[in-house]
Design a protein around this nucleic acid. Structure first.
Lengths: 186, 186
DNA sequence: CTTGAATCGGATAAATCATCCGTTTACTGC
DNA sequence: GCAGTAAACGGATGATTTATCCGATTCAAG
């Protein structure tokens, strides 16, 4: 990749990240181009769609999440591993709305290779974490790893409705975790 | 309200409902106008924004939900009342995406009076249903009625990610209900 | 330094949004 | 009925947003 191309790509990403941080998730490509001081064509070349730009923004977060989940998968206590996984996936979404939007939709056919790779890596890790909990009879039967991901995305959505506070995050996480647990009562 | 105005309002709503049923939730007002055979101005007069149109679409569903929740509030078993309330709120969202969008956002300042009224009525009913469960010690402490609404919206969101099937709805509802229940284990 | 392939920029065509106002229509009082 | 009036209509149109295309420019390899 040519040096100027790489530089511009970064510039665009930085500008988009700034816009997102300011609460503007519309990510209008013409607008981003103007703000980044590059031509519209340049933005469209690197990121043909709003979605592509979102994936670019989410990449870092995705990588950081993977590291956390790897750690969670190495915990002694299987259930705490699940709890860590869920919390990490939840908090990352609350911290990075672009990531939330990317992870909350089915795998995209023409997603960036990096996104697909991250997704696959995450799925594999999640599967193993859950399988361990399942083997130990801690997880409510019938739940797939997809269910888990969807439910966490739903919880993130629920939290985004009101105002985010650490207490609310904890509360909703407890509800979710408790609901996922195998019910050992009658 | 003049007769022609009422007629046109209905025409627009019917057309929008049709579009929504076809899966097009973008509700472009110019487009709706063309399809409904009325002028753009007419649409904008009745529904100044996409949001206003959404609220118009959601009205019927909202009313139907209220009836269901009223029934739920009269159940003998307090916990089953909660279960009915949650299921009704969830299924209505899955059935009517416009309603889902309306209920999933904070009360709008310039919402249609009908929407505000429905919202208030729902909130009051939900509060009473929950209070009863709370009084009987069935509900996890610390949960507000807002939390409940948000969590159900989140569950609807989770279900919309994948493909809807009755089994999945039941599964996610069970997870949620179980998580909301007071935890009587250690 | 030359060459040519990759990249750039931004003019502009296409699509979408929302207003405004001259014309038409429904209701009211007679 | 009919006239008068206020309300509603329609759609032309200006403003905004989206996305493409291609002549000009820049990079890097030899």
């Amino acid at each position: 990749m040519r040096a100027d191309a790489a530089r511009n790509r970064e510039r665009v990403l930085a500008t988009a990240r700034l816009a997102a941080a300011e609460g503007d998730l519309s990510l209008q490509l013409n607008d981003i181009a103007r703000r980044a001081g590059v031509g519209v064509g340049t933005v469209y070349r690197h990121f043909p769609t709003r979605r592509a730009l979102l994936e670019g923004l989410a990449e870092e977060t995705f990588a950081a999440l993977l590291a956390q989940v790897r750690a969670a998968s190495r915990r002694d206590d299987a259930w705490l591993g699940v709890a860590d996984l869920l919390r990490a996936l939840l908090v990352r979404q609350l911290t990075d709305p672009a990531f939330a939007e990317v992870i909350s939709t089915g795998p995209d056919l023409d997603a960036a290779p990096a996104t697909t790779a991250h997704r696959d890596a995450f799925d594999a890790l999640a599967r193993s974490v859950l399988q361990r909990a399942r083997d130990e009879g801690l997880l409510r039967p019938g739940l797939t790893d997809e269910d888990l991901r969807h439910l966490v995305c739903g919880t993130a959505f629920a939290l985004r409705i009101g105002d985010a506070s650490a207490e609310r995050i904890d509360r909703y996480l407890e509800v979710l975790l408790s609901g996922l647990q195998a019910n050992t009562r009658g």
